[in-house]
Design a protein around this nucleic acid. Structure first.
Lengths: 245, 245
DNA sequence: TGAGATGGTCTCAGTATGAGAAGAACGAGA
DNA sequence: TCTCGTTCTTCTCATACTGAGACCATCTCA
């Protein structure tokens, strides 16, 4: 282990092969009842013409969270009303052919996002349904998988779903979020009971929708997000045998 | 936004002020029924003489996970039998006075670790009970807080607790892990029922301990970890009102 | 106007929960 | 050796939560 010691004594990170740090954002929204992710088409090599997660290098004086918010805003124009949180970091030595790049991934959720616009280094930008994805650049498929797992799990024990809907919403709209993200239909009656029984999840506005649903049905009561940060009891997904072992 | 475009067009990460990437490891073990964390005393500025999480710069050709395992092995001599997983990344511009450093934190759990040894750049290394911590260098107190939150949460829905005990163990030993990490006493009877009712959490070896406990009691049956990756149903912590809102 | 869909509430059986109790096995000290 | 306190393990019981299904009132659309 003395070789180890000498190695470290001679170690000066400033003389190292350069390492760059990027942020990559997995931005999710719901369109037409289907979960969509924001992708950009790369305009330059490597992977020119291939779709990728929006992201870029962090800048001096900028925190990681700020970098992620900035990258997202550059593509969507919306930084407000967007929940964003750190996901994980990826640093395999060969994950980018140009140089050593460590990427910090972020997860963002938002309702009713405007059409995306291409950023400066992207040829195009678009929302893709998560079940109809193109082949992604770099290791972005893996990052996206990880992000979806996390989003699905967080829906269980946090009020995250309210970040996908508007200021006020109906229980059915909220259920639509869970069904879109989890990809399974839920029992309307039980979902209703459960949401209202969790303290602080939603609070009534006293109002109802102006009219019934597009295919009939009575007017629905409107709610807004409550002050809970954790759902207790949690809304658990239907059994997932395959994930247990 | 054209200023933005020009900015990016002129952007070459290789010309940037250098960014270094480090890994910091929160290594946890249980000693005398109390959760302990591995700390090293810094031998060099900044924060010389102050205690910190073990960690260091990533090396060329080394993945993040490898770097974390290496740093842990340098302090404990044990890399086997140690569960290690990524936690989060920290990149505030001023978190290290020397230069821009982004740190990827890791969480490690292990049973019966040997006495730590000081690494090359550390004056000393020791296990600290999590309720009797010294003041930590950098933003390591925050990283540690985050790590403890994560460890406590993972105990609920994963078989992580089995990583803190030996190859075979009694239900009481397993309960000791939960009590040490959560910091609360648990109902022995209910804990027993619960652990055995979760499919794949533990499996019987058919053996029992050689003798009763140090203060009496019958011999306990021995179990080994099962093949479950997720606990279903989960072992939930007692109510935590304060964390809900 | 009628058919079909939806919102909201109930019931019911099955399962998980916390709290307490009890019997048997064991160590330690009298 | 005997007794006491401790621990392991299994019960019981009341309460809470769960999924599945049913019900009625309300609304849209044809």
């Amino acid at each position: 282990m003395s070789g180890e010691t000498e190695y470290l004594a001679a170690y000066d990170p400033r003389e190292f092969p350069p390492v760059a740090v990027t942020v990559d954002v997995v931005a999710l929204t719901i369109l037409g009842g289907v979960l969509h992710v924001l992708l950009v088409e790369r305009g330059e090599p490597p992977f020119a013409g291939r779709w990728a997660l929006p992201g870029g290098f962090i800048r001096p004086g900028e925190d990681l969270d700020q970098a992620a918010s900035r990258e997202l805003a550059e593509e969507t124009g919306m930084a407000d009303r967007v929940h964003i949180e750190q996901l994980a970091s990826y640093g395999a030595p060969d994950r980018d052919p140009r140089m050593r790049i460590v990427s910090v991934s972020y997860l963002a959720f938002a309702p009713d996002l405007p059409d995306p616009r291409a950023g400066s280094d992207a040829a195009d930008a678009a929302w893709y349904g998560v079940d109809h994805l193109p082949e992604l650049a770099f290791d972005h498929a893996r990052i996206l998988d990880h992000a979806l797992d996390r989003a699905r799990a967080k829906l269980e024990y946090t009020p995250l779903a309210t970040a996908f809907v508007g200021e006020t919403f109906t229980i059915s709209e909220l259920r639509g979020v869970y069904e879109a993200v989890w990809g399974v239909p839920l029992h309307a009656g039980n979902f209703h009971r459960k949401v209202l029984s969790v303290p602080g999840f939603v609070e009534s506005t006293g109002e109802t929708t102006e009219s019934g649903g597009p295919r009939g049905g009575p007017r629905a009561r409107l709610y807004r997000a409550g002050d809970a940060r954790l759902l207790h009891p949690a809304l658990l997904r239907p059994e997932r045998e395959e994930e247990v072992r």
